[in-house]
Amino acid sequence: MNPAPEEGRTLVVDGGLATRLEDLGCDLGDELWSARLLRDAPDTIRRAHRDFFDAGADVAITASYQASIAGFTARGPTRREARALITRSVDLAAQARDAAGGGLVAASVGPYGAARADGSEYTGDYGLDPDPDIAVDTLADWHRERWHLLADSGADLLACETLPSYTEARALARLLAETPGVRAWFSFSCADAAHISDGTPLARCAELLADREQVVAVGANCTAPDRIDGLIARVRGAPAVVYPDSGETWDAASGTWAGTRDPEAFGAAARRWRQAGARLIGGCCRTTPDHIRRIRDHLD
């Protein structure tokens, strides 16, 4: 199956996997986040994927976002077992896809900051060598083993997501070139309606990736929905992918989310995003199967 959206067609991406897992009773208070459940509760991950497919999603993003070999081996599994857990993320999504009768599996390639679990995935401040070429080498080396595992896993494409830095995008673009035949989207965490988290204009990131046959889309995720219209306008040379947060904000002082979740308004906004040029649309943090169902209803 060709993972690129057909001309004029919009694919619905799933919603917040971690949010769904928490709603199903899982405790994600661990540095591995949802990736821990690849070992401890794989059936629950499979169910969460199925819930999003049943709500109308065309694409499931795997639970490999925060997975890393170092992260798993630090908790007991051998290196071989850690590699198997990473590829299990694709197997679980594929099983849910097959049970639902069709769809695509996008293997999540989370940023280096996600494995650090220190918040740097939202800033891109990794403390690497100030020479950007050396930093690209460092990040490519760190990502390479997991990248090739996921590239060979049978996933339909790779979802390079929540990328906070232009340097990391360069590193992953290098790895994409190492794996001919693999396709991917690149989605950035964004500071505002024009810039990714490290301050680079999204337009510059899109220019880096534009017109590469292996890149199916460029865009934004894990950002506020009111930024999405402006971000779509910055993407040129590739279809846009957008899957923002619910619109709520995290209050660190109280440890709670502020604001309200409005799946209906989210679905209505998705129709506007499609009109602006987005060809893959879904949800990120705090979005549920109900959000995906409303997107499906509005796009249909």
Rank of each mutant, 00 (worst) to 15 (best):
E178M: 09
R116I: 02
F188N: 09
W33C: 07
R271K: 15
D229F: 03
A63Q: 03
A233M: 05
N221R: 06
L32G: 05
A57T: 09
T260K: 06
W147F: 15
L38C: 02
L175T: 03
W33F: 11
A106P: 05
L175E: 02
I232E: 06
R20P: 01
P263V: 12
D131F: 07
E248T: 09
G237L: 06
A177N: 06
A99F: 00
I232L: 11
V13N: 08
G219S: 13
R271C: 09
A265V: 02
I295L: 05
G247F: 03
G103I: 08
R170S: 06
V242W: 04
G255L: 11
L175R: 03
I228H: 02
A265P: 01
L209V: 08
I61W: 07
D51P: 02
V109S: 04
W33T: 07
R293P: 01
V109Q: 02
A4C: 02
R272M: 03
I281G: 05
E7Q: 15
L28G: 11
I86G: 03
C222M: 08
G283F: 01
A100W: 04
T10G: 12
A60T: 15
A114M: 04
H298E: 15
T260Y: 00
R286I: 02
A233T: 12
G219M: 12
Q66D: 07
A94Q: 14
G113Y: 05
V12D: 04
G277P: 08
R79Q: 13
P244Q: 08
P111L: 10
H195V: 14
T10K: 12
P42S: 13
D58C: 10
V105G: 07
A191Q: 12
A252W: 10
I295P: 02
W33L: 07
D14Q: 10
A194G: 14
A268T: 14
D226R: 08
A100D: 10
D14C: 15
H298F: 12
A70Q: 14
R234I: 11
D300R: 15
R271P: 01
P180I: 10
A193P: 00
R80E: 15
R83L: 02
P111W: 05
V59P: 06
A84P: 01
F53K: 02
H291M: 10
F52M: 13
E121G: 10
A210L: 02
P132G: 10
H148P: 04
V218M: 11
G277W: 13
T223L: 12
G154H: 10
G103W: 07
L299A: 12
A82G: 08
R146L: 04
T138C: 03
L24R: 14
R274V: 14
G259N: 07
L299G: 12
A258W: 00
D54V: 13
V215Q: 07
W273Q: 08
A177I: 10
L37E: 06
G230K: 09
N221K: 07
A117W: 04
C284R: 01
D98W: 00
R144V: 05
G15M: 07
